Deep mutational scan, measured.
Amino acid sequence: EFILQPIHNLLMGDTKEQRILNHVLQHAEPGNAQSVLEAIDTYCEQKEWAMNVGDKKGKIVDAVIQEHQPSVLLELGAYCGYSAVRMARLLSPGARLITIEINPDCAAITQRMVDFAGV
Rank of each mutant, 00 (worst) to 15 (best):
residue 114 V to A: 09
residue 33 A to S: 07
residue 5 Q to K: 12
residue 105 D to A: 05
residue 11 L to P: 01
residue 12 M to I: 06
residue 20 I to F: 04
residue 28 A to T: 05
residue 98 I to T: 08
residue 116 F to I: 06
residue 30 P to T: 15
residue 1 E to G: 06
residue 115 D to H: 10
residue 16 K to N: 05
residue 33 A to V: 11
residue 14 D to Y: 10
residue 19 R to C: 12
residue 22 N to K: 04
residue 108 A to S: 10
residue 23 H to N: 01
residue 113 M to L: 07
residue 22 N to S: 00
residue 111 Q to H: 06
residue 117 A to T: 15
residue 105 D to E: 03
residue 18 Q to H: 01
residue 103 N to Y: 02
residue 5 Q to R: 02
residue 98 I to N: 05
residue 32 N to I: 12
residue 116 F to Y: 07
residue 14 D to A: 09
residue 2 F to L: 04
residue 98 I to F: 15
residue 35 S to C: 11
residue 34 Q to K: 04
residue 100 I to M: 07
residue 19 R to H: 07
residue 20 I to L: 04
residue 2 F to I: 04
residue 105 D to N: 13
residue 98 I to V: 13
residue 119 V to G: 12
residue 98 I to M: 14
residue 34 Q to H: 12
residue 13 G to R: 11
residue 110 T to I: 07
residue 97 L to M: 15
residue 27 H to L: 14
residue 3 I to N: 03
residue 7 I to M: 06
residue 1 E to K: 01
residue 26 Q to L: 06
residue 9 N to T: 03
residue 15 T to I: 03
residue 32 N to H: 15
residue 103 N to K: 09
residue 22 N to Y: 00
residue 9 N to D: 00
residue 104 P to L: 07
residue 33 A to T: 05
residue 113 M to R: 06
residue 14 D to V: 15
residue 107 A to D: 06
residue 26 Q to R: 03
residue 109 I to S: 13
residue 104 P to A: 06
residue 31 G to W: 13
residue 109 I to L: 02
residue 25 L to M: 02
residue 24 V to L: 02
residue 18 Q to E: 10
residue 29 E to D: 14
residue 106 C to W: 04
residue 118 G to S: 15
residue 5 Q to E: 09
residue 23 H to Q: 08
residue 23 H to Y: 04
residue 8 H to R: 06
residue 4 L to Q: 00
residue 119 V to E: 10
residue 33 A to P: 14
residue 8 H to P: 06
residue 101 E to G: 10
residue 100 I to S: 14
residue 106 C to S: 13
residue 106 C to Y: 00
residue 105 D to V: 06
residue 32 N to K: 08
residue 118 G to C: 04
residue 100 I to T: 05
residue 6 P to H: 14
residue 26 Q to H: 08
residue 119 V to A: 14
residue 26 Q to E: 07
residue 104 P to H: 14
residue 17 E to G: 09
residue 11 L to V: 08
residue 22 N to D: 02
residue 34 Q to E: 11
residue 13 G to D: 15
residue 103 N to S: 13
residue 99 T to S: 09
residue 35 S to N: 01
residue 103 N to I: 09
residue 110 T to P: 05
residue 8 H to Y: 07
residue 114 V to G: 06
residue 109 I to N: 06
residue 20 I to S: 03
residue 119 V to L: 09
residue 11 L to R: 01
residue 12 M to V: 14
residue 7 I to S: 08
residue 9 N to K: 04
residue 27 H to P: 15
